[in-house]
């Protein structure tokens, strides 16, 4: 999975802290932890900041956890040349 942004953004230690807190302490999926972290880090800003998550399969998008924190979906085989892309505004 790839976690990133489609706009310019700010440096934020909150982003990292909240991501790992949700993914490890609360066992949230990577998608859920990343959404939560982007809101915690940038929700108070007025700029348009958009976060992006890319997964190879729908099962990975819905269910992947960090290793040891829950279910991890298998690698896709054979490759079907498609990805799953979600984008949301985390400040505006």
């Amino acid at each position: 999975m790839i976690l990133g942004f489609s706009t310019a953004t700010y440096t934020s230690t909150t982003l990292v802290d909240e991501f790992f807190r949700a993914a490890i302490d609360w066992d949230w999926t990577i998608t859920q932890a990343y959404y939560h972290a982007t809101i915690e880090a940038y929700g108070g800003h007025e700029d348009t900041i958009k976060a992006v998550i890319v997964a190879d399969t729908l099962e990975q998008y819905n269910n992947d956890h960090l290793w040891g924190q829950g279910y991890v979906a298998p690698d896709e085989y054979p490759d079907d040349d498609t990805i799953w892309y979600a984008e949301w505004t985390c400040s505006g």
Binding site: M1, I2, L3, G4, F5, S6, T7, A8, T9, Y10, T11, S12, T13, L15, V16, F19, I30, D64, L66, W67, V72, P74, D75
Partner: peptide, 26 residues
């Protein structure tokens, strides 16, 4: 291997975001 790869990708991207904050357009 897959789990290590996942942790590496997530960690690298978050550190990248934290220190550089360069945006990548679609």
């Amino acid at each position: 291997y897959r789990s290590l790869k996942l942790v590496f990708v997530v960690g690298t991207l978050l550190i990248f975001t934290m220190f550089l904050s360069h945006a990548i357009t679609q």
